[in-house]
Design a protein around this nucleic acid. Structure first.
Lengths: 189, 189
DNA sequence: AAGCCTGTACACCGATCGGTTTCCTCTTGG
DNA sequence: CCAAGAGGAAACCGATCGGTGTACAGGCTT
């Protein structure tokens, strides 16, 4: 049996949504989405008000696991510098898989082009969470300007995501090397 | 009269396509596109084989002007460092306009999610042109690793584009400051 | 066993998709 | 002055869009 057989319709729907929206883009149809999830359209529209809400919910569901995979555990040892670099090492590791298409939250926002879209709101929150984590570590690491460094790191992170999604970059150590340079310049030991 | 009144149907079509695809995304319909261009669908399909070809042609048409606005003229004075920084200064200046949504070529590739799409091929070429220009200037400027620096600059450029398109960033000197740091580290005086 | 709640299956809605075709009106060259 | 071609308006194609309405099947509780 498929791995999704025992899960609730809601979970099957959100899992399928996360995968299809990521792989094929937000233009994927409700019909195809429900077929892939093994859920009837009727059930989907009883669980959610609209396709947009399904997309938003699927991103929201994805957020904690996404952060957990990128960020070292809070009790893991390591200097702030190491913790920051860890994020980019993890991202580069993920980008080795051929189905990797960059940060799903960034991709959704770029595709939607509407900052007010419910999914954009969720995605923006996820990005701000990461940026704030960077800022905290930058501050702990003694960065000259923690907020600036955090924004620079997001720039590199999202640049790598966009270019990976566009199949423009292979990311063999490029972001880690760049981040090292930025950390050095900011005085993060 | 509108500025497009005297132009040929082909030019009106490509101009409207560039604007609509950029502002509303590649999912914009042929109907709306033709209406906005003041061109009949019949004419469009006599000039192009498909909507995809229109998109590719509109990007191709846009490329030279885009490069010209970003890059300093070849006879402009300036050190390689200044020439590289000029690109990011121009990009930041453009991002002040509210309708700015980042690099149209990057946005198209991210939305299409298909590296083989005719428009993706055009867009990738445009990106490679910019990267090569960076590499040349990096080499002229005595960068330790010109190819690496060029890739880093693209990372920052596309990161800024993606985040501008997603309305995540205001770009008040952020990229210029970041690029300065990278140039310093690479030894580009 | 009766009633109920989930959920599926499927027809259906108007709108729009990319694309084609028909018809008609202009302009322009001979 | 008339023929020919270019191009616009709009009907039309099958498919799909997001979203509903209806009917039925299986598992609960009481």
């Amino acid at each position: 049996m498929a791995t999704t057989d025992k899960a609730s319709p809601r979970d099957r729907l959100l899992d399928a949504a996360a995968e299809l929206f990521y792989r094929d883009g937000v233009s994927i149809g409700v019909e195809a989405l429900c077929r892939s999830a093994g859920v009837s359209k009727r059930s989907m529209y009883q669980l959610f008000d609209s396709k947009d809400e399904v997309l938003a919910a699927s991103l929201e569901r994805r957020a904690p696991g996404y952060a957990a995979r990128l960020m070292p555990g809070p009790d893991d040892a390591g200097t702030p510098r190491e913790r920051i670099l860890y994020v980019f090492e993890q991202a580069e590791k993920a980008s080795a898989e051929p189905e990797y298409m960059g940060c799903p939250f960034l991709a959704a926002m770029v595709e939607l082009k509407d900052p007010e879209h419910p999914a954009s709101v969720v995605a923006r929150a996820a990005k701000e969470t990461l940026q704030e984590a960077f800022r905290v570590q930058a501050e702990l690491g003694g960065a000259a300007d923690p907020a600036l460094l955090a924004r620079q790191l997001m720039l590199v992170f999202d640049g790598a995501s966009a270019r990976a999604g566009a199949k423009l970059e292979s990311l063999d150590g490029l972001t880690v090397e760049t981040v090292r340079t930025l950390l050095d310049a900011a005085g993060v030991a």
